[in-house]
Design a protein around this nucleic acid. Sequence first.
DNA 1: TTTCTTGGTTCAATATTTTAAACGATTATA
DNA 2: TATAATCGTTTAAAATATTGAACCAAGAAA
Lengths: 112, 112
Amino acid sequence: MSNLTKLKHEFTKSSDFLVALGDQKRQAIIVALLDPQVIHRGLQVTDLVDVTGLSRPAVSHHLKILKNVQLVDYRREGTKNFYYLTHQTKAIDQLKTLLDHVMETMICNQNL
Amino acid sequence: MSNLTKLKHEFTKSSDFLVALGDQKRQAIIVALLDPQVIHRGLQVTDLVDVTGLSRPAVSHHLKILKNVQLVDYRREGTKNFYYLTHQTKAIDQLKTLLDHVMETMICNQNL
DNA sequence: TTTCTTGGTTCAATATTTTAAACGATTATA
DNA sequence: TATAATCGTTTAAAATATTGAACCAAGAAA
């Protein structure tokens, strides 16, 4: 398989993740969850509603997208769902690899 | 300025770039331009129309988005516009920095 | 049990993005 | 000078994403 074909696959694999990260509302959710004060116990949906100023269904929707790319997960406590960032950095690593490959290809062929 | 505030700014700065990279049609354009055969002279809009199967206005639209995030630029030759990937890796570096900071924050606070 | 809190889902409305048709401008070619 | 090729833009349509209202379910509290 050619390098270019591999790159194409890497792009496709990172596509959902890129889209998930690009949205500013979701970025706000991620940043809220990155807070050292909350990074372990996570935040409830209602907390995120307060932080982001979005409606609950909107927050719920964005959380689902973030969960699909395995950036967040949640833990149930009674009626409350605590959302937290997964420590799984696979998607991030994948994206970093892609960026490295793109740069490599760009720079490798720069002076041919 | 707190780390979290910095992260928020980095997210915002990379937002357009993330969105630009997330779209599969634009990914196809980028991959086509990454081909060692064309990475120097670039490709005309009509070539990209053939490669992607999109209409010319659609290609033109996506090229504008890619140009806005300074991932591509073009060179005029007569009536032809040759689009090529800029060798400017600023946006990529910025995104990599952001990803590193996110991972750092995630992992640093992991065992508190 | 009844009531309240929490939060997911559905569905319709809204907003945004993407697309193509039509047009115009520029340059090359006949 | 015509004619053809290349490409950007505008505008309206189509597709997609986002949102909120309304509803339902599960668990906690009274």
